[in-house]
Amino acid sequence: MKSCREVTRLLSEAQERPLDFSERASLRFHLMMCGACRNFSSHMASLRKISRAYAAGKRDAVETPPDRSRDD
């Protein structure tokens, strides 16, 4: 059984490469029983979405005062 620390490492690496069969199996097994790591797993997905939004200039789209954020 992998430790939480090891599982978070795999969940991080899954952002860079597809995990192999045994990695996926041990991950599934751990996540079934560990709510904290399930939360961590979904946070990885959120972190990616947030970062992509930031890199697309989203931060400043919301900082523009309302009257300038419109296109008319």
């Binding site: 709510g35 904290a36 939360n39 979904s42 946070h43 939004a53």
Partner: peptide
């Protein structure tokens, strides 16, 4: 321990 995040989708706004 990580806890569930509340409404992560709307944070970007």
């Amino acid at each position: 321990r990580p806890v569930p995040w509340v409404d992560p989708e709307s944070a970007v706004d």
